[in-house]
Amino acid sequence: MSVAVTIETIEKRFENFPALRGVSLDIQPGELVALLGPSGSGKTTLLRLIAGLEEADRGRVLFGETDTRDLSLRERRIGFVFQQYALFKTMNVADNIAFGLRSRPRGERPGASEIGRRVKELLELVQLPGLEKRYPSQLSGGQRQRVALARALAIEPRVLLLDEPFGALDAKVRKDLRAWLRELHGRTGHTTVFVTHDQEEALELADRVAILNEGRIEQVGSADDVYDHPATPFVCEFLGEVNKLPVKVVGSQAFFGDRPVLGGLAQNQGGPASLYVRPQHLRIVDETPLALPGTVEHLRRNGPLRRAEVAVDGLKKRLDVDLASQVAPAIGERVRLRITHGNLFAAA
């Protein structure tokens, strides 16, 4: 039932604005892929293109071997969940879910009792049994979201497309629904593309993450791939907080000023570069050959984490340092920082 989706060098302009610029992406049958990117990066546009609600200027989308340009919207069999749910306000929950089944051509349309049975089944699947008679205005945001999903699943879609499914919900509900969706996907195994601008959500939920920026895919990979080995500075910055250090690479070492701060570099990429280091990859150490001296200027707490801001000579911005289980330094204390992991990008 699930189908592979192949996106081939899609270009899409709105008037003169290039919304997508040569996007290619292969999605395996049954895979859950997240499209992650900042606002305006083209996520919704790409999703609508896959659904057939938008037409590409160049390139094509394949479902399995079939070019989707040869398919009508109905034949595509897409389950689309919209950013704002788009439930039909004038219909109750049961009619909303049954809409797709009732829209089938006469020959394939199930009977009334069969439709009733399917609606009941789907409501159980999305854990809202007994809400058939409610109207969308009488549901909470999370409930509406699940009804929208049930409505999309009713047509037995070949591909499920979700546009910021949890965007409008509060943090707690988001987390619950996240786990629930993961589990639902495990059970139903639909090929799923899911749009979000929340990196945590993407990394936790998806088999693979595609990161979009200004209409281009910057990187595609598993959560570990993209987080630990970002292909571009943009990906590195977008996926989490990061400190930037201008360095110079000589041999296998990176130098900040005339001080070596990171060694064992495999690449032979001499010259100026930017070193990106996440706060959890900076440690306060006693004395090592590769260390960066600085002064603690500020301490703050960020949920479970304590964080120190350390000023370093020759650097305008203070470095954020996570204090895992270490004893917190005092403000004004001189410390030495060791970089345990960093990503180097040649200076542009």
Binding site: R76, R77, I78, A86, L87, F88, F99, S103, R151
Partner: peptide, 21 residues
Amino acid sequence: SADEEAALTLGASPWRTFFTI
């Protein structure tokens, strides 16, 4: 047009979309 688009992706014909949505 989100409602209409939803109806169309669910397989409704344009006529049905216009009259029911």
